[in-house]
Nucleic acid binder design. Structure first.
Lengths: 182, 182
DNA sequence: GAAAAAAGTCAACATGACTGACATAAATCA
DNA sequence: TGATTTATGTCAGTCATGTTGACTTTTTTC
């Protein structure tokens, strides 16, 4: 499906283009477009899992980060997703109502709502990670040794400089603590 | 702005993580999240350019591909973007109405509408490429030699296998005009 | 001359963003 | 204590962008 092959048929050689186009400064057009296509397929993977639940990509993102950071506060989630609390509200409510996320008042600060994945939520989040990991594993094995480290460094370097430290720590705290300490 | 740093306060060192969680199958959670954050910043770049024109990201995508493939047919554009013609219709009409894209009947097949960027459209598309290229150039230079080729191969490998050939040809078409293929 | 193809359009609807205003409970400050 | 701030939630309306389905016009092809 999704054949863009006929695009290639006549291949109207644009060779006769004007000389002004090449712009010697910085044109990484190929990478720009590859990034677009790669990400499109990458985020499309969870769709088939989402659909039966009546969930969308917003639910995926929320559940993913809640699962990765059990006990996180709502404000933290908002900062990660960079959406408004009204936007988050609807999606989060559905996840809570349908038993994928648990929202408990904080022990030390009872204003806070700490978010935890339920067993059901953990299972679904695992499915998301599994399907996207499958794609990544395939890609990396095609690229040979060193590809994982290269990909990681490239992606980190693509992130806004002022956010990198925070993102890296967020990303790496994964396998560690799972205790509802907070 | 957008500080997720407070998320890091406790920063549970992942070194001491238990061996149980890591799930030996395939969990590339770090790369999954880095891809998310990197792409978010990457597509956010054109926003500042878009806003003054009252355009959105859909306009960016359409103008970008029209500019890269002058004279492309509407159907080809639909196949690249993978949206319906009704969705494309609105965005394309605005781009045509405001003089960024030119829509001309095909010479050989007069049913076709061939899409061309106007001078104004070309200039705007160049701005988009420039700002995103700037980010990529910075990232690659941080990663050292070989990073560009590594990034390109990784991104291609992340694309659905059945689309890769078409995407690669599409992506490299513009370059073909500038330099004989390697 | 009939059928198929390329494109455009109308209408209705879904998702996931947004702003603005306001409510409530709990913590903190003076 | 009382006032203020903080964390969260919610109502209401809007916008951007996607979807289906039905239908038209023009032009090409069989």
């Amino acid at each position: 499906m999704t054949d863009i092959n006929h695009l290639m048929d006549p291949a109207p050689a644009r060779a006769a283009g004007p000389a002004a186009t090449p712009a010697p400064d910085q044109t990484f057009v190929e990478l720009i477009e590859l990034f677009f296509f790669a990400y499109r397929d990458f985020v499309g993977d969870p769709d088939e899992i989402l659909t039966p639940f009546g969930f969308g990509r917003a639910h995926h993102r929320v559940l993913h980060f809640v699962n990765r950071n059990p006990g996180m506060r709502v404000t933290e989630l908002l900062d990660i997703l960079r959406i408004t609390k009204q936007s988050l509200g609807r999606v989060l409510r559905e996840l809570v109502d349908e038993g994928f996320v648990d929202s408990r008042a904080g022990a030390s600060d009872r204003r806070q709502r700490l978010l935890y994945p339920t067993a059901k939520g953990e299972a679904l989040a695992r499915d998301f990670v599994a399907i996207q990991s499958r794609r990544i594993a395939g890609a990396l094995s095609e690229c040979g040794p060193g590809a994982e480290e290269a990909a990681r460094r490239f992606l980190v370097a693509m992130i806004d400089r002022e956010d990198r430290a925070a993102v890296e720590r967020l990303v790496q705290r994964a396998q560690a603590a799972r205790a509802p300490s907070a």
